[in-house]
Write a protein that binds this DNA or RNA. Structure first.
Lengths: 228, 228
DNA sequence: CCTACCGATCGGTAGG
DNA sequence: CCTACCGATCGGTAGG
């Protein structure tokens, strides 16, 4: 092995350690936990833009202001980084969706509940943390089996609240498709928007959500059916 | 450079060419044009299963029964192979879609036309050539700008016939969403099925298409509106 | 279409 | 968290 320190330079070796190489950041700016978060954020952005396999750990390190080997101080592998992106994004999405449903009036009609779920889903896809879930949607394959099943549990938790809402709409005759299939089609149509929709365009995410809802439920909110 | 032929073995060099290395296939089994097609087919299957970046040109060569360098006899680069997959798949889809529309009665109602388009799209995704279009859908990014715009023209040709149908449904009040958005949502819901649907399961592709149509158009075919 | 090869890059690691 | 490095693999090519 070859080292950059010249082993023949005994004077330097015996002298007190001098600062070598590039200057270190002052300790208060390094802020341990945030370095890891910065890696996850950078990885999410790069994975979304170019895909997992096309992004190198060196790219991620550079985006987070580190050297090539440093991501492996925080994560044991590239795929562990992907797992962190997906896991943290999905955990946050489950949390905010649960909070949303808690905030709805207990007697909110199914139509209003579905509207809230669709609107929230678009916020998850295009909000400030908008890289995390698309990475899950499109880079699923790159996870190991063990990682996949950890994610699958969270995904089930995210999708669960959709079912009673779709079942109620189906029972009321407002949804002609079998609820489980309806959920797959609806989430598919919404997830696909990451391929073509730009939130900075003329149509804001909430308006896009309203258009999607109109496609699935046909006529405008038939309030009369719910409020007897 | 080092060659496998021993240059000191002048006797062998002067002797009439002997068969060296692995045996060649007889000429009639090689069938020039089909080798290229086999590469495209193998590439399509691998790109779909593992993604463009995760598949090596060696993998593709092996799947087509070739050695590592041989794909570059047929294609100038890995991305040219991807382009061939996408281009040939999309060309075929445009052709069969056009044939389908020609075969419909001239007075077929918009509802029936949309049903035919949706059914055909599922056949494109899950039929015998079912790897080609999913590769386009999910590996779009890996194409060069020039390749992308060549594909974009074909994609426009594929999507064009959907618009008059959706506009007619919109005008008839059977579709509550602006037609252009409806097209994006509908094709998105259908394209997403490659993530979860297995055609060898209990629900055949045509039945899946019917369920999707019911979701978008609500009530069963309102024939009375079209047949006066 | 194969053989033999090249330069570049990749994920990951030892040692500090 | 950096430095210096390793073995493996990758896309691609020259020459036949």
């Amino acid at each position: 092995m070859v080292w950059c320190m010249d082993v023949h330079d005994t004077a330097a070796a015996d002298a007190p350690r001098r600062a070598r190489g590039r200057p270190r950041k002052p300790p208060e700016a390094r802020d341990e936990g945030n370095r890891r978060r910065e890696l996850v954020r950078s990885a999410a952005r790069l994975f979304r833009r170019r895909g997992f396999a096309a992004v190198s750990t060196r790219d991620i390190a550079a985006a987070a202001g580190m050297r090539s080997g440093s991501p492996f101080y925080h994560f044991e592998s590239k795929s562990a980084l992907l797992h962190a992106v997906v896991h943290e994004g999905l955990e946050q999405a489950v949390r905010s969706q649960d909070a949303l449903l808690q905030a709805l009036p207990a007697d909110a009609p199914a139509h209003a509940r579905l509207a809230a779920l669709v609107r929230h889903h678009m916020q998850v896809l295009f909000g400030p943390e908008g890289d995390f879930i698309p990475v899950m949607l499109y880079e699923w394959r790159a996870l190991s089996p063990a990682q996949r099943s950890a994610i699958a549990r969270l995904k089930t938790a995210y999708e669960a609240p959709w079912m009673p809402v779709l079942q109620a709409l189906h029972a009321a005759g407002l949804l002609r498709t079998e609820p489980r299939l309806a959920r797959l089609f609806i989430l598919g149509a919404l997830n696909w928007t990451v391929q073509w929709y730009r939130p900075e365009g003329p149509l804001p995410p909430d308006a896009l959500a309203a258009q999607a809802l109109a496609l699935f439920l046909g006529p405008p909110p038939p309030v009369f059916l719910e409020t007897a």
